[in-house]
């Protein structure tokens, strides 16, 4: 059984991602297509919220990945700091813009949903506020990556920012709760008995969630591959420069 750490080698990672990326991309497309078709056309409208609730098939998976992308950045940053695997740092770099986009999708779909439901595009609700702040953390993280020229310095500093930022992002979540108790409904999915949701909703939602996870995997792999190629060309140029 090959160790996971083998894929810290860029060459092996490229070989693995070469087939894993298209496979997860195709699977993601299929799952999201089926999930959305099921959810939009086969699922009956909600008796209270009408058709508007169907935006959850985009909203919830995007929100899920917005948080998980940061969690993944946290793990890959730690791996970089502890074991100095370059692929790990580059995967964190690739995940940044994707997580930011997911956060933005969650915010925008939330606003579109909130307009007919709450009568307002935006409310300073703790969940909404936390997501907006999460988005700001993503922006800062991406900006720090792009501001530093030396790739290893950038990897180190963004990794520390990710660690410290995680603590403050969690603190912000609780601060937002303390600040305002909010309009947002509780978690839509619950593992506790007496679940509030019918399978005609849960089915497409689960499909879309798995689809978004796979979409995220495909996008991160694609992004990491781009970063590895950029580093490879940089290394080649450095070698040329040194030979000259």
């Amino acid at each position: 059984m090959a160790s996971l750490w083998e894929y810290a080698n860029p060459v092996k990672f490229m070989r693995l991602s070469n087939w894993l990326m298209p496979v997860s991309a195709v699977l993601a497309a299929a799952l999201i297509a089926v999930g959305l078709y099921w959810g939009f056309f086969l699922t009956p409208d909600d008796y209270r919220q009408g058709a508007t609730i169907k935006i959850i098939f985009l909203h919830v998976p995007a929100a899920l990945m917005a948080i998980n992308a940061w969690a993944m950045m946290l793990v890959t940053s730690l791996i970089w700091l502890i074991r100095r695997h370059h692929v790990s740092a580059l995967a964190a770099k690739a995940a940044g813009p994707i997580g930011a986009t997911m956060t933005l999708i969650a915010l925008i779909t939330g606003a579109i949903w909130g307009q007919p439901m709450w009568g307002t595009w935006w409310a300073w609700d703790p969940r909404l506020t936390s997501f907006l702040i999460l988005f700001l953390f993503y922006v800062g993280y991406i900006a720090l990556w792009s501001a530093i020229e030396d790739p290893d310095t950038a990897a180190d500093l963004t990794a520390v920012l990710c660690l410290v930022g995680s603590v403050f992002a969690v603190l912000s979540r609780y601060a937002a709760l303390f600040w305002n108790q909010g309009l947002h409904q509780g978690a839509s999915l619950s593992v506790a008995p007496g679940t509030r949701m019918d399978w005609s909703y849960k089915g497409p939602l689960y499909l879309c969630m798995i689809g978004f996870v796979l979409l995220f995997v495909a996008l991160v792999l694609a992004g990491t591959r781009t970063e590895i190629r950029a580093r490879r060309s940089r290394a080649l140029m450095t070698r040329e420069r040194a030979r000259a």
Binding site: H86, R234, A235, L236
Partner: peptide, 13 residues
């Protein structure tokens, strides 16, 4: 001397 195994970026070659 180059190429050396010393620099980090060589892992990408």
């Amino acid at each position: 001397g180059l190429p050396a195994d010393l620099g980090f970026d060589e892992a990408f070659l």
